[in-house]
């Protein structure tokens, strides 16, 4: 299980929306955050979010049970990891 949090504001909401289209992925509202939970990895294509550069690279609020394994101009990938920090 992998969890990605993004802040629930107009800038970052598209990440949760794009992520929600993948199978086995749910989005919940937790306080001011959107909590994206997936059975495996979470992949979000930047072009699908429409985020400009600065928004894209400040879009991650937090990551639980995973780590950011790719975050470039193409996509954000959060990979599951067993050992919690």
């Amino acid at each position: 299980m992998t969890v990605l949090y993004v802040l629930d504001v107009d800038d970052f909401r598209p990440l949760a929306e794009v992520a929600s289209k993948a199978p086995d992925t749910t989005v919940r509202r937790r306080g001011p955050y959107l909590e994206v939970e997936a059975a495996g990895e979470i992949r979000i294509e930047r072009d699908a979010t429409g985020c400009r550069n600065a928004v894209w690279y400040s879009s991650v609020a937090a990551v639980e049970s995973g780590r950011v394994s790719r975050w470039d101009k193409v996509e954000l990938v959060v990979t599951p990891r067993g050992d919690a920090l």
Partner: peptide
């Protein structure tokens, strides 16, 4: 940054425990 994201996730889970509601787009 990886440790920061993990710590922040734990703080969010603690502070907003039980508040989650499903979101559909």
């Amino acid at each position: 940054l990886e440790k920061f994201f993990a710590r922040k996730a734990r703080l969010i889970a603690e502070r907003y425990a039980g508040e989650a509601e499903l979101v559909t787009f």
